[in-house]
């Protein structure tokens, strides 16, 4: 069966939204998939809301611009308001409850929560926040193999940051543990 995952990650600029997408895209590349990474490149990447569409597929990818997604990863309230309705029926919505005042309500999609912000603070590694989220995603939607994610991390991180890969790996594993269905 041919695979295709159309995914959006949305949150605040500075949360690592674009880099999480980049790591996913590189992981797809490592797994010999077709990939497209389409960022919001406006002023939002300097603060405000930011989002990125990542498509990983066995076949040629047509549009980088989509109206609905298999999976949405939501990291703030504005993004939840905007993208909850864009998840395909039967699709997946993963969110971090930190700062969420109005929880998602749809009944026709699978909703998961990853308490990544608080966990990253507990782990004393707030910068690995997005990797905890990524771990949660990979548990629920194993679109890429974990070894390819580590290869993807290596590819997308500059060499001077390679010593941080074990910490990121630990964060991914943590995310896989703490994700829970609602």
């Amino acid at each position: 069966m041919k695979m295709k995952e159309e995914l959006i990650i949305a949150g605040f600029g500075g949360q690592g939204v674009l880099s999480m997408g980049k790591i996913l895209a590189y992981s797809g590349l490592m797994q010999d998939k077709e990939v497209t990474w389409m960022p919001s490149y406006g002023p939002e990447q300097r603060g405000g809301t930011a989002n990125v569409t990542v498509i990983i597929s066995d076949d040629r990818i047509s549009s980088p611009i989509l109206n609905e997604f298999d999976t949405a990863i939501i990291l703030n309230q504005q993004s939840l308001d905007k993208f909850e309705k864009s998840v395909k029926p039967g699709g997946t919505l993963i969110f971090d409850p930190y700062g969420i005042t109005k929880a998602p309500t749809r009944k026709d999609i699978n909703i998961y929560r990853v308490d990544a912000m608080n966990t990253s603070i507990e782990m004393n590694a707030p910068k690995s926040f997005n990797m905890i989220i990524l771990g949660g995603l990979l548990k629920i939607r194993p679109v890429v193999e974990i070894e390819n994610v580590l290869l993807g991390l290596k590819k997308s991180l500059p060499e001077r940051h390679h010593h941080l890969i074990p910490m990121n790996e630990a964060a991914i594993k943590k995310g896989m543990e703490i994700i829970e269905k609602i």
């Binding site: 980049k22 895209a25 590349l29 077709e34 990939v35 497209t36 990474w37 389409m38 960022p39 490149y41 990818i61 980088p64 611009i65």
Partner: peptide, 10 residues
């Protein structure tokens, strides 16, 4: 345009 310029692909 900004789409093809900014997006990453293989």
């Amino acid at each position: 345009d900004g789409i093809i310029g900014q997006m990453m692909e293989k």
